[in-house]
Design a protein around this nucleic acid. Structure first.
Lengths: 213, 213
DNA sequence: CACCAAATGCGACCCGAGTTGCGTTACGCT
DNA sequence: AGCGTAACGCAACTCGGGTCGCATTTGGTG
């Protein structure tokens, strides 16, 4: 089973038996996604237009509207691609170290305009289209799932209570950072990232994220 | 000094001595802001158009573009109005109670589509225009400032260490909620809100938000 | 290899957001 | 009360996003 879970009928490898998974369609899709990503870093989300993608991908405007229907659809598809990477959570030996590394990773990503443009666009697109919102939801669910081993190691070491919810802890680390970046629009430095990690760690130790006492 | 701090030259009561703070301009501005808010709850941010505001406010399209320049400008101005309310943080007698009440308030606001439409639009607009982003920044800075007494009371009661940063604590409560709402696009129930309050409380007790030890 | 359907290319068209120039109204001041 | 100017109303225009109908290519299939 391909990492692309099904969504709307439009994009994605059209189910291994149906239609034509052939070469041209795949080539088109890849070219389009490259153009979308380069467009995002170049003009940002507000400046990304379907016509730009058409020119820089060699795919006709009509085709883009037919298969992706809008800029948000293009971004949602690009998000699927982004979710297929091989990222794994840090493993420093201690929970505190892992959480700090995780927070710094987020801070560094959005500190670099080029690296942060695409993720920011994904979040912005979710305001405009339910399709993009669902893609985001799936992306983060899968991403937080990858953090489970990190928490299990900490439980095994006795750093946090048994029954600690991995997802809740992972979310607790990221939330303050994204909050500052995209809600309150405040600057994000390493001190804030460290504080977020510390706060999540303290809450986890107190058993706030443990289901069974 | 009016609660409207100055920003771009365009909107806002034009400084009590200059130009003409007169009746028509003020009436126009009020009518426009009403139309913006009703438009947001009716069509949401993606569907809010300048022309809609023109029709429902009785103010001509040209005037809107002249004074606010775009939909994002209109929203930024409406945000200033929203910041002028008389909201005060809860006071239940205990820090835990206050934080829980705060979290529930956020959850309830965004649980109601009508009440949540405008705030969500403000956040969305900040992705499109720096003017809206700065308005948001100011709004939340002022809002978190109002939470200072809440934390001071807790310090006086000995519930959290002296030197606990009020802003950091207030942010810690809201962050997980907004994170779920607008970043990961996950549903938000009362249990999650309660957990956010508990996590912030645990971190505060552990001294994570205290500057001096 | 020939055929059919899916997928793409292509240009013309429509519509609405945003702009411009000018005339009109109303506020503020003497 | 009367004047000057800021603020607003108005209609026409431009321009780019998005759509439509049809021709063309591509890939799977018997």
């Amino acid at each position: 089973m391909p990492p692309n879970s099904s969504r709307t009928p439009s994009p994605g490898p059209p189910a291994p038996g149906t239609a034509r998974p052939g070469g041209r369609t795949a080539r088109t899709r890849a070219a389009v996604r490259d153009a979308v990503l380069s467009g995002l870093v170049e003009h940002g989300y507000p400046g990304l237009t379907v016509e730009y993608v058409a020119e820089h991908s060699g795919v006709h405007k009509t085709t883009l509207y037919r298969r992706w229907s809008s800029v948000e659809g293009l971004i949602a598809d690009a998000l699927d691609l982004a979710g297929e990477d091989s990222w794994t959570p840090p493993d420093t030996g201690t929970l505190g170290g892992d959480l700090h590394a995780l927070a710094q990773e987020v801070a560094d990503t959005f500190g670099d305009p080029a690296a942060g443009a695409a993720p920011a666009a994904f979040i912005a697109a979710a305001f405009q289209s339910e399709q993009a919102a669902e893609a985001l939801r799936g992306f983060y669910a899968e991403r937080f799932g990858r953090c489970a081993p990190l928490v299990e190691r900490a439980v095994a070491r006795g750093e946090v209570p048994a029954g600690t919810d991995p997802g809740a802890l992972a979310r607790a680390v990221s939330a303050p950072l994204f909050f500052r970046l995209f809600i309150t629009r405040e600057p994000l430095d390493r001190a804030v990232a460290g504080q977020a990690a510390d706060a999540a760690l303290a809450a986890a130790r107190a058993g706030v994220f443990a289901s069974t006492a």
